[in-house]
């Protein structure tokens, strides 16, 4: 009887000691995953995910508060990287990849106000005050920040048209195969 009580109590105390030490020893300060994910995100802080910047987005993904499909500029490529990193399966088919888009300045309406290139996260718009601005297609990620601030609505976001180089076969559709 007494032995049982003593054994169990001692065992409890010993375990408490071990666990207490272990808890102190192996304390994890900050989640390194957040940093890794932030490194994957575009980093342009464009705000298309609805959050104030890529660092916050990364935190939201780790906390499970945002889906890994949150980043439109990243596209499917980013979703795949995130899925790999977080070891989750994601149904890519449901992901209507927003076709990549570019900003285009309609020159007849541009008044050269410079607002757009001040907000551009990638410095893709060039121009000077009172000059018509234009967009460097290679640097534009189609985030649309410029269109929001343009006072004359002369910035348009156009989807990129496929070319022979970028065209790819659509996924075959057939009633039988898409039944699941």
């Amino acid at each position: 009887m007494i032995e049982a009580i003593i054994t169990l109590t001692t065992l409890g105390m010993l375990l408490g000691l071990l666990l207490g030490i272990a808890a102190k020893r192996f304390k994890v300060e900050k989640d390194p995953l957040v940093e890794e994910i932030e490194a994957l995100l575009p980093g342009s802080n464009c705000g298309q995910c609805g959050l104030a910047g890529c660092a916050i987005g990364a935190q939201a993904i780790v906390d499970g508060k945002a889906p890994i499909t949150l980043c439109p500029p990243g596209g499917k490529a980013l979703v795949r990287q995130l899925a790999d990193k977080l070891k989750v399966d994601v149904d890519m088919s449901s992901l209507a990849d927003k076709p990549p888009a570019f900003a285009r300045v309609r020159e007849e309406h541009c008044i050269g106000c410079t607002r757009c290139f001040k907000v551009c996260p990638t410095d893709a718009i060039i121009g000077a005050p009172k000059q018509i601005h234009s967009v460097l297609l290679n640097a534009c990620n189609g985030c649309g920040s410029c269109a929001e601030v343009c006072p004359t609505s002369c910035v348009e976001i156009d989807p990129v048209k496929p070319t022979l180089g970028t065209w790819c076969w659509p996924k075959p559709v057939s009633a039988e195969h898409s039944s699941r």
Binding site: G12, L15, G16, L19, G20, A22, A23
Partner: peptide, 10 residues
């Protein structure tokens, strides 16, 4: 929190 699981199990 550090020892909650053993306590629960016990």
């Amino acid at each position: 929190p550090d020892v909650r699981i053993p306590v629960f199990v016990l």
